[in-house]
Amino acid sequence: MTALIEARDLWLKLGTQSVLRGVDLTLGAGEIVTIVGPNGSGKSTLLRTLLGALRPDRGLVTRAKGLRIGYIPQRLALDATLPLNVARFLALPKSRGRAATAAALARVDLAGFERRPLAGLSGGQMQRVLLARALLEAPQAILMDEPTQGLDQPGEAAFYRLLQEVRTETGAAVLMVSHDLHVVMAASDRVVCLNGHVCCEGAPAVVSNAPEYRALFGEGTQGALALYRHHHNHDGCDHA
C-alpha cells in the first residue's frame, strides 16, 4: 500500500495550547479513515496540518508527489456581501469547463444548480456543492472536516452513501473528521480516536443487522452508519 499522506510525530501549539502532541497518521491509497475525538481534541487542526494549511512545530507531513486533494471545509463562512453563484464558485481558481462542471453537479444530485447563488443553498446542498468541487479536482484523496455537521440523520446517511459511491467510482482515499464519537461512516476502513494524540484506532463494528443498531438508526440509513467501540488502554483519553 502506498501512502498518499504520512504524518510523523506532529506537535503543534496554537497560542499557548498544545493541540497536537506526537500524532502519527498514514492515509493509504483508496483507504477510508475517520478521525473521531471530543471537542478541542485537535481533529480539525490535524486535518488542516495534513492539508498544508498549518505548519507543525515539530514533526513531518509527507504528501505523495503531485497529490491531488479535494478538500471539504467544516462550513463555508461565506460573507453575505459576496455575490457568487455555484458555477462561478466551482470555476475558482480556474474553470474546468462547462461540461465537467455540469457532470460533477449531476453526480451529487444538483443538476442545473449552476446559476443558483451560493448564499441561498441549504446546509445539505452546500455540502454537496463542496463535494462536487472536490470531485472536479479528480482527487486521489478527499479530506473532509465534519462534512455532515448540521445534517439530520437521514441526511447524514444519504451523504455517506453518496460519498461511498463516489469513492468506488474514483478510487480516491477519504480522510474525514467526524463530529460523532461513536457513530461513523460504515465503510470506514479505520477509525482513529484523537485527543491531542492518538488514543486508539481500529475498524468500526459491523452491526448493521443487529437489532440494537436498527433501534438506534432505524431502517432509513441502509447501513451507511456504523458504531465504533473505543478501546483505550492508557490514560488521558477520557471522554464521554
Binding site: R48, L51, I69, G70, P73, L92, P93, E137
Partner: peptide, 19 residues
C-alpha cells in the same frame, strides 16, 4: 483576481487547490 477571490471565500480551499 481568481486567486484573490478563492482565498477570500475560504483560505483552506485555496490551499487545497495548491495556492
Amino acid at each position: 483576481w481568481n486567486r484573490l477571490l478563492l482565498s477570500s471565500v475560504n483560505a483552506d480551499l485555496a490551499t487545497a487547490a495548491g495556492e
